[in-house]
Each structure stands twice: as C-alpha cells, then as structure tokens.
C-alpha cells in the first residue's frame, strides 16, 4: 500500500506577519491596539479579551485622549494587556504594578492611570501594595481580572481560589478559603468597589467608565473564565460553559454589603456596584497637611530674616 504524505511546507513567518498587519484597522477598536499584536495569546474561551474590550469601550465613552491615558500591568496572563494597548503602558515586575502606578499618578496628576492586573499579581505578591494604595487613596483605577488561579504558570493555587477547588497544586481540593476581594478593597479604603463577571460586559463597561471618572482609589473586580487552568480540573467545562454558569449563578445586587460577596465553589455569588463614596485623595491630603504648612513656615522664616 502506498501512503501519500502531504508535503510539508515551512512556516512562512513573513507571510503570516503581513497577514496580521493587513488585518489591523478592520475593527473599530484597533486604534487602541498596537498594530500587529492581535491575535493575542489568550486561550479560546478566556475572558481577558472581554475585559480588555470593555476597558476600551469605557475609555472611548469617557473621551479620554490616548496621550492622557496610561495602563500599568503586572505579570501573568493579564499582564499581557500592557503589550497590546497602544497607549503609555508599562509591564512591571511581579506584583509591583501598583508602586509603579503610584509614582506615575503622583508625578502627573492629570493623567488617568489604570492598573490592569490579575488576582495572583494584585493579591498574592502585591497584596500589601494594594491595601496601602487604597489606604492612602492614591488616584488609581484598579481593574482586577479574577480567574481564581495562576493561569500563565500552569494553574496553581492562588489566594482567590475558593475552598475545595482543585488546581494543579491542590489536586485533592484547596484547603484554604479564598479572599473576598471587594470586601478587602472596601475595608482598605477604596472609594469605589464593584464586581462583575465577563457575562455582564455592558455593566462592566459602565462600571469602569464610572471608575475612570472618579478621583481616588477605585477597585473593579472582573471575574473571567479560565477554561485551561481552573475550568478543566474543576469540571466547569469550556469558556462558554463557564459563561453560562455565571449567567445562572450570579445575582445582581447593587449597593450590597461586600461582606456577602464571598465566592464558594459551585454556589451563587453576588455581583454589582457595592460601594461608591468620595473622600480626599492622597495628593489633596498631602497638599493640605505638608506642602501648605511647609510653605507657611518658610514664609515666616523669610519674614524673620528680612526683619
């Protein structure tokens, strides 16, 4: 029997790249994306693209010029966002997105600084930075994409993994309960706390655009399906099935106590805008308590010298 094999052709990188370049500009969102970077590396069924689309929609809705918008992200799947957006973006070291963004926000107060990072980056290694930035009320907009595990490194257990959930490092079930992120951010002093899933893209876009308008530390949690890292070991199915799960198992409750927003495996959880207040942000407090007092002291000294 003669077996005819298909002739193998070498991968033509140039042709593939020209194809990708040719596609750029077809979509109206492409002017916010770096040319030649889409298609992104995220898995089919991943919710990160949805969060990125809603963020672009929120920026467009608020008419923030691209020059005045900057995005800082940490390490992980979500950290790739900085590489895809055609703005002033920075891909920092693991967990240090908020310190970098704090410096950026203090150096240029007119700039809208968004921290776009994952749960493993913001709450595992960068947990302290987040609570202190929230306590100081630095003018930062934090978007935390929560997929309940460390996705990029192979689905290890993260501080947000619910109790009894299986991951690659907890094959018999997680023994630790996960963080309740909105409650934590609220307790640390964030002025705006919201949680939505990727099944609620309109509400998420509205929430992000509200957060971009606010002054102070805002926190938006976006729950995203992770079919490879979290869905597969927990038998949650593909990304689409996880989206159906979010449709059936979420309850929109705006203004609810964030204490109730705990997530347990395969149980109903609440989404919505939990907290929305105003309080003086870091620069305002610093100007009032340090800068103005030092200036008045210096004036007194100068007067003394003149006399």
């Amino acid at each position: 029997m003669k077996i005819r094999l298909r002739e193998l052709s070498h991968f033509d990188k140039e042709a593939a790249e020209t194809l990708i370049q040719k596609d750029h500009g077809l979509h109206p969102d492409d002017k916010y994306l770096k040319p030649g970077r889409i298609p992104h590396i995220w898995c089919p069924g991943c919710g990160l693209g949805v969060v990125l689309t809603t963020f672009i929609e929120a920026v467009r809705r608020n008419r923030i010029p691209i020059d005045m918008c900057s995005v800082v992200s940490g390490i992980g799947c979500t950290g790739r966002v900085a590489g895809y957006l055609d703005m002033d973006t920075y891909h920092t070291t693991h967990g240090r997105a908020i310190p970098f963004a704090t410096g950026l926000a203090l150096a240029n107060p007119q700039m809208s600084v968004t921290v776009f990072s994952g749960d493993g980056d913001l709450f595992a290694i960068g947990g302290n930075h987040l609570i202190h930035a929230a306590r100081r009320n630095v003018n930062l907009k934090v978007i935390c994409v929560n997929n309940f595990n460390f996705g990029m490194t192979g689905g290890q257990v993260a501080p947000t993994t619910p109790l009894e959930a299986k991951t690659s490092t907890t094959p018999t079930g997680n023994a630790e309960p996960g963080f309740n992120l909105p409650y934590l951010a609220h307790a640390a002093g964030a002025v705006y706390v919201a949680r939505w899933t990727t099944f609620h893209p309109r509400q998420l876009a509205h929430s992000i655009s509200q957060a971009l308008n606010k002054k102070g530390f805002t926190f938006v949690e976006a729950i995203a399906p992770c079919p490879t890292g979290y869905g597969r070991p927990n038998k949650l199915g593909s990304g689409l099935e996880e989206m159906r799960f979010y449709r059936d198992m979420t309850e929109v409750r705006n203004g609810a106590d964030p204490k109730l927003a705990e997530i347990r495996l395969r149980e109903k959880f609440i989404v919505g805008t939990f907290h929305d207040t105003d309080r003086p942000d870091f620069l305002e407090n610093y100007d009032r308590n340090v800068v103005s007092r030092v200036k008045s002291k210096q004036k007194g000294k100068e007067k003394g010298k003149a006399a």
């Binding site: 693209g49 689309t53 893209p201 309109r202």
Partner: peptide, 9 residues
C-alpha cells in the same frame, strides 16, 4: 453586544 463580548476583536 457581540463586539463587546468578543475577546478577539
């Protein structure tokens, strides 16, 4: 909604 929910642009 399709353009908002599509992760791939």
């Amino acid at each position: 909604l399709c353009s908002l929910i599509c992760p791939e642009f």
